[in-house]
Design a protein around this nucleic acid. Structure first.
Lengths: 342, 342
DNA sequence: AGTGGCACTCGATGTATATGAGTGCTAAAA
DNA sequence: TTTTAGCACTCATATACATCGAGTGCCACT
């Protein structure tokens, strides 16, 4: 970009002021903000150029200027400097979830809540299980006259269980049979392989027992599907209502944002690693044209990957938001790696 | 209430028309709606009386009349006739969740979603575990080098499990020790008794082992707390945004509605059995003054109780909503009883 | 008791005017 | 060549005022 230093500063100032106030920024304010190093007229000339370049927009003739999504893009890529997360913020994050001894079941949910709380935006966390992950073992554990615990352990160290009541009396033989059946037909397969279709085909082989065992195999399928899908949380969606520019179409926006698949698509569009920012119209989805999204990806010790991110108004404090999102991403990567490996 | 038949009909008509259109209702429309059986002037006189009684309100002098929350109360108690759920609706409910073979883990969530979908309101479901429920058994099941499944079974037939990694190698002795410890210190107690405080005191008795076992006992506590708290789902909160009269304070309302404790308070205020309706200002909470809530309670085969309900605009079709909520309540009672007893 | 008639109220709508923030452009200054 | 002062111009916003009409309240009449 062939912008001279002064135009760069002007664009910066407009982006920052507009982010703070939400009001279009006029040449006079910019001049004052630069300690009147240049007169409003000079600023105006530069603003006209920035406008020609499509970096600024004007809501109407007699109003100040506002950064276009392209202007924010330039600001984010070239002009802003990410502000590292300060100690005070670090403390309040630690207060929100216990970093030393995190509860693995709640970690992702708590992280989404905390990020949302800190940024004032909607925040999400998601983990993705690689296609290469296989079922290491299926445990069938009797736990009563007619109840079983079904447990699936995968090659990446994730374990999940479900309790199911059975229609029959649980005997050692039945348990052994089921165990062997799962060991033969399910263990070793990738989670991807274990589809409703596959389960149907192996159920057939059970012959006369298929009817009573079907609910149990369904539970196995559910467990595998849940692990394969990974975890997902979206928190603080209501926070978006406080931004007038989003409150207009709040219903559509929230409806869109609540659906995991929509956010998953967003995550998939982000770069493989690091942080990706989607500004306004850069978003594919119609509903998010007036939003920006920040997505940070992290690895979980080579055993999978996670993403954390937020959705807020285009007019957001990118310098702070990016730093906070990345801080969380690093934290989550470390904590999850420790949980799965340690 | 000393209303004559005509005034009763007029109030009914105003309630119905206002519910449909959202516009204040004038004497002329009411007259036409009653096939001009009475002239607008007559209607006006009656409306003036209803206004004096506080059953009608007028937004401003030159506008029609609107039922006050007291007016809706009279309408709901004395005038409306609940419309039974018709077959078509029944079919679409069955399409939403499989009534014949419901998934116990998802039943409450699905019911809330379905009720929300059908009514266009926010819908919630909750179950309450009676204080008398005790822990029948705590199972500790080894499932790997250093993983355990912890399972709690209660006297009302609820079973829940959690997987926990341990900091030590799982041996038969350790498992036996933990089993005995739980059998002695936890089994037989009511869920209410098993508090963080109680767990702390018994942890002390573990002496040198307390450090390694604490996370496991914490898991037991979590399981008991979760069972004691019962299940809770709130679905379709966004639907409230479509009602202009609610969209004003949407942020506050949604924030309030999403907190289980707020809705639990609402449920606790409802009658022990049957359906309770809270209209507008009848709601205790400030945030819900512009809402109405319908709460239906049902028993779960004597083993507990559940509630299902919805939150929507004051201007709602009570006759239909009450019928639908009660239909769901009956259905849930039957299904849950079957799941726990069958 | 019920109705027609009529004055009255008050929000909604429309028009005209003033205000002022901010721009674009030109000519002068640096 | 760059910067600035000056000034005409634009257009959203605010205010004032007139008009309109839906709907009421009340009185006199049937």
């Amino acid at each position: 970009m062939e912008l001279d230093e002064r135009k760069r500063r002007i664009l910066s100032v407009i982006a920052e002021l507009y982010t703070q106030t939400g009001e279009p920024v006029g040449s006079k304010v910019v001049s004052l903000y630069l300690n009147s190093a240049y007169s409003p007229a000079t600023i105006r000339n530069d603003m006209a150029v920035l406008f020609e370049l499509g970096l600024l927009e004007q809501p109407h003739t007699s109003a100040g200027r506002v950064p276009s999504h392209l202007g924010y893009r330039v600001f984010v890529d070239d002009l802003m400097q990410v502000r590292p997360v300060n100690g005070q913020l670090r403390d309040s994050i630690e207060a929100m979830f216990n970093i030393r001894d995190p509860d693995p079941d709640k970690l992702l949910e708590d992280a989404a809540k905390a990020l949302s709380e800190i940024t004032g935006c909607a925040a999400f966390t998601a983990t993705r299980t690689p296609d290469s992950v296989t079922v290491r073992r299926v445990e069938i554990i009797p736990s009563g006259e007619n109840t079983l615990v079904i447990m699936v352990m995968t090659s990446n160290g994730v374990i999940r269980s479900k309790v199911r009541r059975t229609g029959f009396r649980v005997t050692a033989e039945v348990v052994e049979f089921l165990r062997a059946f799962c060991a033969g037909k399910i263990a070793g397969l990738t989670l991807r392989d274990i589809s409703l279709r596959y389960m149907s085909t192996i159920t057939v082989e059970l012959g006369e027992y298929s009817r009573v065992f079907t609910p149990l195999l369904a539970a196995v399928l559910e467990l595998c599907s849940e692990i394969y899908a990974g975890q997902y949380y979206m928190e603080g969606g209501i926070k978006l209502l406080q931004y007038p520019e989003l409150a207009r179409n709040a219903g559509e926006l929230l409806g869109h944002v609540w659906e995991r698949e929509n956010i998953q698509r967003l995550i998939d569009q982000a770069q493989r690693t690091g942080t990706t920012i989607f500004i306004g119209k850069e978003n594919q989805s119609q509903e998010m044209q007036n939003c920006s999204a920040i997505v940070s990806k992290y690895g979980i010790g080579g055993r999978g990957s996670g993403a954390i991110g937020l959705i807020g108004p285009i007019r957001m404090d990118y310098a702070a938001m990016v730093a906070e999102t990345e801080y969380f991403a690093r934290l989550m990567g470390e904590l999850l790696t420790e949980i799965y490996d340690g």
